[in-house]
Amino acid sequence: MSDDKSVGLGPRVIEVEPEAKPVPPLEAPPRVIETETVGPITPEPPPERGALVPVVPATPSRHRLRRGLRLALAGLGLFVAGWLVIDTVDWVMTQFHESLALGILAAIATGVGTIGLGYVIGSELRSFIGLKSVEAMQQQLGGDLARLPPQKMRHEIAAVLAVIPRRKETEAAIQSYQRQVQPHHTAAQQIELLSLTALQPLDRRAETFIRRAALQAFGVTAVSPTAFSDSLFFLACSLRMVRGIAECYGHRPGVAATAHLLRRLLLEAGTLGAADLVTTSLVQHLGGAALEHFAASAAETLYAAQRMARLGIITMGMCRPIPFRKDEAPGIAALLEHLIRRQPAP
């Protein structure tokens, strides 16, 4: 221990200056204030039948890349674009040197190609950004709704309504929502109403896609000769179902958006798959080889349908602008129950 007493820190009491007081809440007592307005009070009525649906731009995605990475990607993009432009111009000029006709042809081909490429890129970007903005909405609306002021929720829901695809049944459902929602409804109540009205036709339509895909998986697995053809068909069915469900909720599933959806689907399904693996192992250990063999041969086709239905429900959850509330997601049993019934084509 050091002999230097000035270095050691002894116990002490330090007085702290009180922080500046926050602005106190209004302490005015209750009172009745007379007005000059006469006439009865009419609580705010719901919008009239056929009122216009408010169209508010979708909330921009909060998911942003880091600034450095964005700059790097932009630089890389500029480099590639510049390289392509210079190369193309160089190629067109070369053709002009060869002959005027070839040059004009090359210029026209380049112009048309550029327009086509621009359209494809634009379409891909639009669908990808649309999907990302829905994911942002989900994150925002999936949190603690009790703390969200009703006014803010009204704005958020207007943004959701703006991205919902317009069909006859959805128009009617949106108008039904607008007639039912009242100024006093809390954020959670507004979400509940939206689920009960505007999202109902979308959910039903998506469920139809799931049932159809499950039915196909059921049938093909039953007649498929090899495991490889099984898998191939299952993959094709899944892809078609994912795109169909995405379309139900108003997405334009381009390559980028579909890839993004599949990536998330794999992650979600992977989590579920791990849980299933444990269950299957337990069955194997507890039931023995005979039971395993019987289960594998008899229930394989049903299992494929159940798998497909489960993937479909996960996809619904990803594409739906409002996350499913507790006990709201369709059950696999209920979906499979309808397999034998005739469903209207979506």
Binding site: A28, P30, V32, I33, T35, T37, V38, P40
Partner: peptide, 29 residues
């Protein structure tokens, strides 16, 4: 809404039974 002590506060507006004019009721916190 109503201006009370220089601040805009939320009130409810109703028509008391037996009167012609509406009143604003400020309930406090």
């Amino acid at each position: 809404t109503e201006e009370i002590d220089g601040r805009t506060v939320q009130v409810v507006i109703g028509k008391p039974i037996g009167t012609a004019k509406q009143v604003k009721f400020f309930v406090g916190n």
